[in-house]
């Protein structure tokens, strides 16, 4: 939370986002059949997934830290990270459907990565339903933390093991999670990795703002109760 309010962090985020848009649109990309110019969608679609996984990992880390010290701050952080993770997951699904519609022919192709990603989003939507259905604050935090850890463990085989057991239209299935087909082009990596960092950092920034908002709200309610 401290990190996201540092000036350098914000400057870096903004700079990387700008770089992603400029370089992503203007740099040369390999000429590949079917993909054509739409290969540039890689810079904006795939970072949604990478960002989602990294941000959900942060969320589960804060849930574990909550259970080891019962500091409510960790619970609020875990919640907000999970919310941003859901947002990124939904954006990843929508952008993926749009892209698939023009390259694979249909928006929903039954591709294992697509289905498993949709289920991962469902798992985390269930997390927010759970939070909504418990009234008491401390109990809510504790139960939600338990479910968060459980849900993350259930999501790992979903995202990292199951898609590799079946053939996928995504590049790099059958062993490597990376993108073998594009690996030849180091120029694309020069844009792709900064883009992942940029969108993850943006997610952390948003989550930290909402954490502060939630905190202010909590203490406001406490004041009113007194």
């Amino acid at each position: 939370m401290k990190l996201a309010s540092q000036t350098w962090f914000r400057a870096l985020t903004i700079a990387l986002l700008l770089y992603t848009v400029l370089a992503g649109m203007l740099f040369d990309v390999p000429r590949l059949p079917i993909l054509n110019e739409s290969i540039r969608a890689l810079y904006f679609h795939v970072p949604m997934w990478f960002g989602m996984v990294i941000i959900l990992l942060l969320s589960v880390i804060h849930s574990i830290r909550y259970l080891s010290g019962f500091d409510i701050k960790n619970d609020v952080l875990a919640t907000q990270y999970a919310n941003v993770g859901i947002l990124y997951g939904v954006l990843g699904l929508l952008t993926g459907m749009l892209w698939a519609n023009y390259t694979w022919g249909t928006p929903w192709h039954g591709d294992p990565k697509q289905t498993t990603a949709a289920i991962a989003v469902l798992i985390y939507l269930a997390y927010s339903v759970l939070r909504g259905s418990i009234e008491d604050g401390d109990r809510k935090a504790r139960i939600a933390a338990v479910y968060n850890i459980f849900a993350f463990a259930a999501m790992i085989p979903l995202l990292f093991i199951l898609p590799r057991l079946t053939s996928s239209m995504h590049p790099g299935s059958g062993g490597n999670p990376g993108f073998n087909a594009y690996d030849l082009d180091s120029k694309m990596r020069m844009v792709f990795y900064p883009s992942v960092i940029a969108f993850t950092a943006l997610g952390i920034w948003i989550a930290s703002l909402y954490t502060r908002l939630q905190f202010a709200r909590n203490s406001f309610e406490e004041n009113n109760q007194q």
Partner: peptide, 27 residues
Amino acid sequence: VVAILVLVLGGVILYLFRLEKKISKLE
């Protein structure tokens, strides 16, 4: 196209800064 994308991005970042200002006031 690039100019439009940069403008949209700028708008989102401006929104984040304004949100933060409001939160600071609330705090």
